[in-house]
C-alpha cells in the first residue's frame, strides 16, 4: 500500500521540479496544476475524501487565476537565474536544511499509526472524543464536517474572515480607479 504513496509523491515532486525549472511560464503553471491534482489523488488514497473534493475545486480556481495572470504576458522570458554563485549557495543551504530537518521525523509517529491510536487506551484525546461522541453530540455522520462546523466553528468563522479579507484586498488592488498615471 505505501508504494502507491511513493509513486504519487514522486509524481508531485517531478511536476514541481519541472514547474520550477522550465522556461515557459504557462507550462510551469500547468505543471503546478498537475501537482495539485496529484495531491488530490493522494488525499483520496489517504482516506480523506472531503479534502480531495476541496482540493480539486480549489485547484481548478487556482489554475484559472494563475493562467489569467500569465496568459498574455508569456513573452516575458527572464533569462537565467541570479548569479551562478548565489544559486549554488542557495542549493547548498536548502540541502543542509533538508538533511538537518529530516531528523525531526524520528520524533513523529510511524507512518500508518496515528498518535491518537498509539497512546494508552484510557487517555481521552480530542480525536478519540470526536470519533466516539461526534454523531451523538452533533448529529453529523461525517466527523470532519462535525469538527469544522460544530466543535471548531469559530475556527471556520476565522477562516471565512481571512478569505473575505484577502478577496477584498485583491478587489482593491485590481479595481479600475487605481490606474492613476504617476509620472515617474
Amino acid at each position: 500500500m505505501p508504494i502507491l504513496f511513493y509513486v504519487l509523491l514522486l509524481f508531485i515532486i517531478i511536476a514541481a521540479l519541472i514547474a520550477v525549472e522550465t522556461q515557459n511560464l504557462l507550462s510551469s503553471v500547468i505543471c503546478i496544476g498537475a501537482a495539485g491534482f496529484g495531491g488530490s489523488l493522494i488525499f483520496l488514497f489517504l482516506k480523506a475524501p472531503d479534502i480531495a473534493i476541496t482540493q480539486i475545486t480549489v485547484e481548478v480556481l487556482a489554475l484559472i487565476i494563475l493562467i489569467r495572470a500569465t496568459i498574455s504576458r508569456d513573452k516575458t522570458f527572464i533569462s537565467g537565474d541570479r548569479e551562478f554563485f548565489s544559486v549554488i549557495v542557495s542549493v547548498v543551504v536548502v540541502l543542509v536544511l533538508f538533511l538537518i530537518g529530516t531528523r525531526v521525523f524520528d520524533t513523529f509517529p510511524k507512518f500508518g499509526e496515528p498518535a491518537f491510536a498509539v497512546e494508552t487506551k484510557t487517555e481521552q484525546t480530542a480525536s478519540k472524543h470526536y470519533l466516539t461522541n461526534g454523531l451523538k453530540e452533533t448529529g453529523a455522520a461525517n466527523i470532519v464536517a462535525s469538527v469544522i462546523l460544530d466543535y471548531r466553528a469559530y475556527d471556520t468563522l476565522g477562516e471565512a474572515t481571512v478569505l473575505f479579507t484577502s478577496i477584498l484586498g485583491a478587489t482593491v488592488l485590481l479595481r479600475k480607479q487605481a490606474k492613476i498615471k504617476v509620472q515617474t
Binding site: 476541496t54 480556481l61 469538527v147 485590481l174
Partner: peptide
Amino acid sequence: SVDPLPQALVLTAIVISLGSLALMVSICIR
C-alpha cells in the same frame, strides 16, 4: 478510522491558501 482532526484543519488551510493566492496574483498583475 483515520484521524479526523488534521483533516478538518487542512480543509481550512486549503481554502485560505486560495485566498492568499488570489491576493498574490493580483499584486503580480498590478
